[in-house]
C-alpha cells in the first residue's frame, strides 16, 4: 500500500513537472513539489494509522481549555 501511495504521488509529480520545467517555472515547481511532499507525508501517516488530531476536535479541546 505504501509503495502504491508513493507511486501515485510520483505519477502526480510526473504529470505536472515536465510542463513546468519546459516553461522554466522554477518557483512554481518548487512550491508544487513541497506541497506534494506535505500531502504525501500526511497521506502516509494516515495510511500507517498514525493518529493525526481531528481538526474540529482540536478546536473544541482548545476552546474548552480557554473557557
Amino acid at each position: 500500500m505504501i509503495v502504491l501511495m508513493i507511486l501515485i504521488f510520483l505519477l502526480l509529480f510526473l504529470w505536472e513537472a515536465p510542463g513546468l520545467m519546459a516553461q522554466e517555472y522554477w518557483r512554481e515547481l518548487a512550491v508544487f513539489t513541497i506541497l506534494l511532499i506535505v500531502g504525501l507525508v500526511l497521506s502516509l501517516l494516515l495510511l500507517t494509522g498514525v493518529k493525526l488530531p481531528y481538526i474540529e476536535s482540536f478546536w473544541l479541546n482548545l476552546f474548552e481549555k480557554i473557557v
Binding site: 504529470w15 518557483r27 512554481e28 512550491v31 506541497l35 506534494l36 488530531p53 481531528y54 481538526i55 476536535s57
Partner: peptide, 27 residues
C-alpha cells in the same frame, strides 16, 4: 503568497491536502 505566475499546478497538491483534511476533520 509565493509570487507565482500561475496557480494551476497547485490544484493537485492542494486537492490532496483537502482530501487529507476531509479525512481528519471530525471523528
Amino acid at each position: 503568497l509565493f509570487n507565482l505566475r500561475t496557480y494551476r499546478p497547485l490544484a493537485i497538491p492542494i486537492g490532496v491536502l483537502l482530501l487529507v483534511v476531509a479525512r481528519r476533520i471530525f471523528p
